[in-house]
């Protein structure tokens, strides 16, 4: 069954190096819709990334920087990107060598179509 995010997620997962993408509730960390390659633990990524994004959001606001837009965590074995709008967070899991510049632009563009 298609959700309002299916098309967005289908486009994002096609990018080289992207292993999973999902729309997650910002406050509950639960997956709303996802497109994942086999082996990606979607619920763990969703819960932990939404929590990280929320934490960055709160810290940024408290530090006087305002609301957070794009967020990226780079790790030894890959990276996680997130961007939020309307209480939802678009999350991408990718390999270490992905072109994050393109991913960032696509994510910010995709957010504009969020209901």
């Amino acid at each position: 069954m298609n959700s309002p995010f299916t098309q967005t997620l289908s486009a994002l997962i096609r990018h080289r190096g992207v292993t999973g993408c999902m729309v997650v509730g910002e406050s509950d960390g639960i997956i709303v819709d996802s497109s994942l390659q086999i082996g990606v633990n979607g619920s763990a990524v969703a819960a932990l990334t939404a929590s990280l994004y929320r934490k960055a959001q709160r810290a940024s606001t408290a530090a006087g920087f305002g609301m957070t837009g794009f967020f990226e965590l780079v790790a030894e074995g890959g990276r996680v990107c997130a961007a939020g709008r309307n209480e939802m967070v678009l999350v991408i899991v990718a390999g270490a060598k992905v072109n994050v510049g393109i991913i960032r632009m696509e994510m910010l563009k995709a957010l504009e179509s969020f209901p």
């Binding site: 997650v24 509730g25 406050s27 509950d28 960390g29 639960i30 619920s43 763990a44 969703a46 819960a47 932990l48 939404a50 929590s51 929320r54």
Partner: peptide, 8 residues
């Protein structure tokens, strides 16, 4: 915390 984290 969140429901997702607690479930995880």
């Amino acid at each position: 915390s969140s429901l997702g984290l607690v479930q995880l």
